[in-house]
Amino acid sequence: MAKHKIYTMSFASVYPHYVKKAEKKGRTKTEIDEIIRWLTGYSQEALEVQLEKETDFETFFAEAPKLNPARNLIKGVICGVRVEEIEEPTMQEIRYLDKLIDELAKGKVMEKILLK
């Protein structure tokens, strides 16, 4: 079975869309970065290196220093699919991130987004 197209897409090519979506709703790039760091365990510096290297999504998540164990508590629908029911691990990680970005854009406070 062929890999989904998003796996081979550069994380850096999608990142500006995350930022734009957040900024359109009055949120910030800093908040986007905080969400990504919370989910993946990347430091800010390591995140910036991944963006500069134009790492693909599959590698971005495969090389994540420490995927947050609380990410399994993320629930809800993204692109018409419940994130907690996605069986393919990499796709689930991508959709977890999408869900968190959506919550940010919808005005949810960071403490709730990051399950604190």
Rank of each mutant, 00 (worst) to 15 (best):
K20Y: 05
N72C: 05
N72V: 09
H17P: 01
Y18V: 00
M9V: 01
E111L: 04
S13G: 06
E52V: 01
V77S: 06
T30M: 07
K3Q: 09
E48A: 01
E34M: 11
I78W: 10
K66C: 07
E111Y: 06
D98V: 01
E85T: 13
A70R: 15
E63M: 14
K20M: 07
K66L: 12
T8K: 15
F61Y: 15
K112G: 00
L67F: 14
L51M: 11
T40S: 15
K112W: 02
K112H: 08
T8P: 00
T8M: 08
E103V: 00
T59M: 13
T90G: 03
D102F: 08
N72T: 12
Y96K: 10
Y7F: 15
E85P: 07
I78L: 07
K106H: 10
K20L: 07
F60N: 07
A70E: 12
F61L: 12
L39G: 02
D98R: 11
Y18I: 01
F61R: 14
Y18G: 03
K75Y: 05
L100C: 12
E45S: 14
A46S: 15
Q50N: 11
G76D: 04
I6E: 05
Y18W: 14
K21L: 11
S43Q: 04
I86E: 03
G80I: 03
L67W: 08
K116D: 02
F11N: 07
C79Y: 12
H4I: 02
L51D: 06
L39P: 07
N72H: 09
L47T: 01
E103F: 02
T30L: 13
S10E: 12
R95I: 00
K20E: 09
S13W: 03
E48L: 01
A12V: 02
D98N: 13
M9E: 06
Y96M: 03
K53L: 12
Y42G: 05
Y7S: 07
M91S: 12
R37S: 08
L47E: 03
I78R: 14
I101R: 11
E63G: 04
R27Q: 11
A105I: 01
V109W: 00
Q44Y: 09
E93Y: 15
F11I: 06
L97E: 08
R71F: 10
E23A: 04
K116N: 08
V81T: 13
T59C: 05
E111Q: 10
Y96L: 04
S13M: 04
D102N: 15
R27D: 00
K29S: 07
L100G: 00
K25L: 09
A2H: 06
P69W: 12
G80V: 06
R71C: 05
I36D: 01
A46R: 15
E54C: 05
Y96G: 04
K25T: 06
K24L: 09
K20D: 08
M91A: 10
L115C: 03
H4C: 00
Y18L: 10
E103H: 09
E63Y: 15
T8F: 08
E31S: 09
